[in-house]
Computed example of a mutant assay.
Amino acid sequence: MSGINLVWLVVGIGLGWAIAQRFSRKAHSSSPLDEEPAIVHPNEAPDNGDSVQQLELAYYNLAEIAHYKSGFLARSSHELRSPLSGLIGMQQLVLEHLCDSPVEERDCIVQANESALKMVDVLDNIIDAAKLEHGTLQAQIQPVQLAPLLQKVYRLTHLQAQNRTIRLHIATPDPEVYVLADPQRLQQALVRLIDTTISELKDGEIHLSLQPSSNEQTVCLAIDQPVALETWSDPIDWMQQNPAWKEIIYGIGLPDKRVIAELAHVPFPSPGFSLLLAQILLQSMQGTLQVIPLPDQEGAQGVGDAAAIVPETRIECILPRLILEDE
């Protein structure tokens, strides 16, 4: 009996020693005291000043974007008020039976329809510009041959110029000149700029040509025109100058035919807003747009001479150029 007890004693001691060793190794491997402590040197401490500057920069960037978007919304609303007022005014003329004849009544309806179509076109451009700015709409950047694109721009604009006795010249560039752009939006920007210029002129010439660029990586499309630089600076503030529009909008009294006629002929969109829309389109294609004054040109003094009306400003559209391999 004593032999059996001795055997069980030896087995118990062995099991106890094995269990003790196992727990000892586990505790040793997981002990935080055995880990290498992280040493932070004073020179390697995080710079709280840089973090604050980065946060301030991000805040100012967000504030600038918010200010730009609110300004864009305000200008868009301002641009749409003028044709909307004319549209309501012409409808009131018909509803109040103030037209002198059925022919005049039909003219009012035609003008109202034209104003509505213009508003839809500008709204489409505003929506596209907003989507490009927000990033929900991406420009389809691809190699674009300038020669056929400019020919298409001429076909879309020369009739408007001809109807206003304005001479439109679009020089055909070298067929080897390519740019990296979205062809549809580039065409849209150029057509809008030329159409706006035509609406501001009673006579003169418009020249669109390829000009030498500051470097070989870009292409400069220039639109020379006899339009004052101030015309492109700000949208037309016709509403504030003519408070009678409120009578039309809110139906106060009878509509004034003279006021409605002026509303119908207010350029829409204004040159400043057209320039902004074109600028957004070019920026989406990594391009830039600027309006610069041209130096005074002497020697055009003859009355009735076509050369007497000289360009005053130049709109420069600068785009990335595609360098062909054989160049």
Rank of each mutant, 00 (worst) to 15 (best):
H97T: 10
D296M: 11
P173H: 07
K202D: 13
L62D: 14
A147W: 03
Q286N: 12
S51R: 15
S77E: 12
L322F: 09
R258W: 03
A58Y: 09
P255C: 09
G71D: 09
S233P: 00
A278L: 04
A264R: 05
I260C: 04
N113S: 15
K202C: 08
Q241P: 03
N242G: 11
G204N: 05
L193D: 01
L73D: 11
E176Q: 12
L322D: 00
I323K: 11
T288L: 07
E312K: 15
I280D: 02
P311W: 06
A264Q: 07
G86L: 02
Q111Y: 06
P83Y: 06
L263Y: 09
A264H: 05
H67I: 12
L208G: 07
V310P: 03
Q54V: 10
R25V: 15
I198K: 01
K118G: 08
L208V: 15
D34G: 06
P143F: 10
S115D: 02
R155F: 10
P183H: 01
V40D: 08
L208D: 06
Q188C: 07
L33S: 12
T231H: 03
P102D: 14
D174I: 06
Q151W: 03
A244S: 06
V259Y: 00
W8Q: 10
G135D: 01
R167T: 12
I126C: 05
T196M: 00
G253H: 01
I223P: 00
R185G: 04
V144T: 00
R258P: 01
M119C: 06
E216K: 10
A222I: 04
P320K: 02
P267A: 11
E216P: 06
A181Y: 02
L159R: 14
G16L: 11
A58I: 05
D326E: 15
D256E: 05
Y154C: 07
W238C: 00
Q111I: 14
P311L: 05
I206Q: 07
H78W: 11
D47E: 13
D50P: 02
H158D: 12
P148R: 03
F72S: 00
T197W: 00
L6F: 11
G12E: 12
I65D: 12
P267T: 13
Q184A: 09
I236K: 03
G89C: 08
D107E: 14
S115E: 07
N113W: 08
Q138K: 06
T197D: 04
I248Y: 01
A306F: 08
A306T: 13
E230A: 09
P243W: 02
V10P: 02
E247Y: 11
W238D: 08
Q21I: 14
S30P: 03
R106F: 15
L150V: 00
I280C: 04
R314Y: 01
M1I: 03
D326H: 13
S70L: 14
E262S: 15
E316Q: 13
I198A: 02
K26R: 15
Q187W: 04
A264G: 13
Q241L: 10
E44H: 10
A18Q: 05
E327Y: 11
E247F: 11
V219E: 00
P148Y: 01
P46Y: 09
T218I: 08
S115T: 09
I170L: 12
I170W: 06
D124C: 03
C99L: 10
L150C: 01
L180M: 14
V120F: 04
V11N: 13
N242P: 04
L98V: 12
D203C: 09
Q240E: 15
E114R: 10
W232D: 06
S233Y: 07
I236C: 02
A66R: 11
